[in-house]
């Protein structure tokens, strides 16, 4: 057993411990966040075209849970499911949590982490590309996604930036693209 994290993944001991931690209601929080975004910027979801009805499986490989995202504008949903119940979906995007978070906030270039195989894509590549390009255009910060505004947002984003940078260094994650 090694405590040295492998290329951005939580150390095995932490991965095992997380199996015993009750999951937070992330599905509910993220569903509200995506629906709020769709209400504020409906044009953004036009980029998805037919893929707004697609089922995207977001698979943080170092967590005991996966997420199913259906980005259907104000009817969007995000479900958190135990890994053992991982559904098929239209497409699956897999990688360490810190890499997936880096794709959301623009720290990583999707192609670059795909070429280095820190990110794995299964299923409909067209759908993944549409989602990636929509997220790129959304240009969201973590606090913005969760609906915070003004000074609180700035403070939370600054804290998140520092925390993620420290996590990337500690977890031996790929170098940030920005």
């Amino acid at each position: 057993m090694t405590l040295q994290p492998e290329r951005g993944m939580f150390p095995p001991i932490l991965q095992r411990a997380l199996r015993f931690v009750p999951p937070p209601p992330l599905g509910f929080v993220l569903t509200r966040a995506v629906r709020r975004l769709a209400h504020q910027r409906p044009d953004l979801f036009d980029r998805l075209d037919a893929y707004r009805h697609a089922h995207f499986i977001i698979n943080p490989i170092d967590l005991p849970h996966v997420f199913r995202l259906i980005p259907n504008g104000e009817h969007a949903s995000v479900e958190m499911l135990p890994r053992k119940d991982m559904p098929e979906g239209t497409a699956r995007i897999s990688g360490p949590l810190i890499v997936l978070l880096g794709l959301v906030d623009g720290t990583y270039d999707g192609d670059a982490v795909f070429f280095t195989r820190d990110l794995v894509i299964d299923g409909d590549t067209d759908a993944v590309l549409a989602l990636r390009n929509t997220m790129e255009e959304a240009d969201l910060t973590p606090a913005e996604l969760l609906g915070f505004k003004g000074e609180v947002r700035k403070h939370l984003d600054a804290t998140a930036d520092k925390t993620f940078a420290k996590m990337r260094a500690y977890l031996n994650a790929p170098q940030a693209s920005t």
């Binding site: 270039d109 192609d111 670059a112 693209s177 920005t178």
Partner: peptide
């Protein structure tokens, strides 16, 4: 043009 903001900036 198919690459993301991180690529463009860098």
């Amino acid at each position: 043009r198919q690459r993301g903001k991180a690529y463009i900036s860098q």
